[in-house]
Design a protein around this nucleic acid. Structure first.
Length: 442
RNA sequence: CGGGACGUGGCGCAGUCCGGUAGCGCACUUGACUGGGGGUCAAGGGGUCGCCGGUUCAAAUCCGGCCGUCCCGACCA
């Protein structure tokens, strides 16, 4: 249900930016994968390959897609003749498989669900703009829907997509101060179009290779949501993603009460539904009220309405907000009408508070002004979080720091996230060329 | 592939050292009482103790072999 709501939210943003859905095959001929050298080197270790079918060994083995660039650009090459056929702006929702040695539920699984967008453009500038636009779409979605505000920026060479030119990413900080790469957007240049002969005739009549982008988010976002908002009681689901936004729980002692109170609960639920609230009545009579409270809080439902025998004569209801981050005084006695009419606004406030709390945590756990390895190591051995330092761009420094501290460069941050005064010194010594963000990652 | 653990009702575990009627918690079934923060009492159902072999009067327990799973590391959205 949560992933389904994520899909709906993302679909809206994809459509607004002119993309349409398609579907391409699950099995990809090995020769396709092998065509782009860096691509095959990057993905070969985690490929699952079909070697037999119909009781016979296959002449050409088929890879179960780890990502679909190759087969999609193979198809685009057949569709594109002229600059008039561009751009192609497509997205597919599907499963992919990467044979990970170590899995972790929702964060790293052998098979996962995702969307992958693949576009083809006539110019490098247009493709670059598309890659950046989609990075922005992911950021918007993460902030406005998941309340999981990321730092955005460019990936280093060692962390970029295998076969691409540049990778952009959204990196969100979890409550344990580890970073989660939640969405990536790649400028692929002409690497794939050259290998798959994706050519077009330009307005000037010349034959040119198209420029590609690809971008994706996965069910990892669900894991991110859990790690961002969860607490000791269970998960907390932001209202915009919640399959159930309000659960109504009738409370009764005797049979006569049960009928009246349940009837009222369904009435209030119907009224909430009429104003667009996703609501469920929990009228199971074999569970105690307390058991239901715990269950729905564990599942992260934002609000609960209790209707009991004492409330009926007063025409009131008890509103309880899902506790998170040590909030107190959550129970409110409200007139029925108000409990219904106020709900949309309370849901919005709940959503906004989650985002603000997550932003505050991110800022509180971002460390700036660190410019030596010892300082970085101290933070990584201790509290963790995002650490902003200078870097001279040398992969050897990146590698050495990783070995010393277990932290990696999550991104070279976009301007908005850069420190006011960019560090002048590189973490590995000498002058810095840029600022980077370090963190331990999932 | 390296290092470490563990396989016992659906789930989580004790029992293994020191062989002797297979147990506990949760969950499940039925009934009564209960019901505003994980209910109580009573009565029940459910297990080839991972597999194969050995020792023994007797094996969850001791011995040998095999199989499987998980954790830590390398790979990684």
């Amino acid at each position: 249900g949560i992933w389904e709501n994520m899909q709906k939210g993302l679909e809206g943003l994809f459509k607004e930016t002119g993309h349409e859905n398609a579907y391409f095959p699950l099995l990809i001929p090995m020769s396709f994968i092998e065509r782009e050298k860096e691509h095959v080197e990057g993905f070969a270790p985690e490929l699952a390959v079909v070697t037999q079918a119909g009781g016979k060994e296959l002449e050409e083995y088929l890879a179960i897609r780890p990502t679909s660039e190759t087969i999609i650009y193979h198809m685009y090459a057949k569709w594109v003749q002229s600059y008039r056929d561009l751009p192609i702006l497509m997205n597919q929702w599907c499963n992919v498989m990467r044979w990970e040695l170590r899995t972790r539920l929702f964060l790293r699984t052998s098979e996962f669900l995702w969307q992958e967008g693949h576009t083809a453009h006539a110019t490098a500038e247009e493709a670059e703009a598309e890659a950046l636009q989609m990075l922005g779409v992911y950021r918007t979605f993460m902030e406005d829907w998941i309340a999981m505000p990321p730092v955005t920026g460019l990936k280093t060479e060692s962390e970029k997509f295998a076969g691409g030119v540049r990778s952009y990413a959204t990196e969100a900080l979890m409550q344990d101060n580890k970073a989660l790469q939640a969405g990536t957007s790649h400028f692929l240049g002409q690497n794939f179009s050259k290998q798959f002969d994706l050519k077009f005739q330009s307005e000037a009549g010349q034959e040119e290779y198209a420029w590609n982008t690809s971008w994706g988010v996965s069910t990892r976002l669900v894991g991110g949501m859990v790690l961002t908002h969860g607490d000791d009681v269970g998960i907390v689901v932001p209202p915009r993603l919640a399959p159930v936004q309000v659960v109504v729980i009738p409370i009764s002692r005797k049979e006569e009460e049960r009928v009246a109170v349940t009837e009222k609960a369904h009435e209030l639920a119907a009224r909430l539904r009429d104003i667009g609230v996703r609501v469920k009545v929990d009228d199971r009579d074999y569970l105690s009220p307390g058991a239901k409270f715990w269950e729905w809080e564990r599942k992260g439902v934002p609000f609960r309405l209790e209707i009991g025998p004492k409330d009926l004569p007063k025409e009131q209801a008890v509103l309880v907000r899902r506790v998170s981050f040590g909030e107190e005084n959550r129970k409110e006695f409200l007139p029925e009408n108000q409990a219904v009419s106020g709900m949309p606004a309370w849901l919005d406030t709940f959503q906004a508070n989650l985002l603000q709390a997550a932003k505050d945590r991110r800022e509180a756990n971002s460390h700036r002004g660190v410019n030596d390895l010892a300082g970085l190591k101290e933070i990584m051995d201790g509290p963790g979080g995002f650490v902003y330092t200078g870097w001279n761009g040398d992969p050897a420094v990146e590698e050495r720091v990783k070995e010393e501290t277990k932290a990696t460069i999550r991104v070279i941050p976009d301007p908005e996230f850069r420190s006011e005064k960019a560090p002048g010194k590189c973490i590995g010594g000498g002058d810095a060329k840029m600022e980077v963000v370090w963190a331990k990652a999932y």
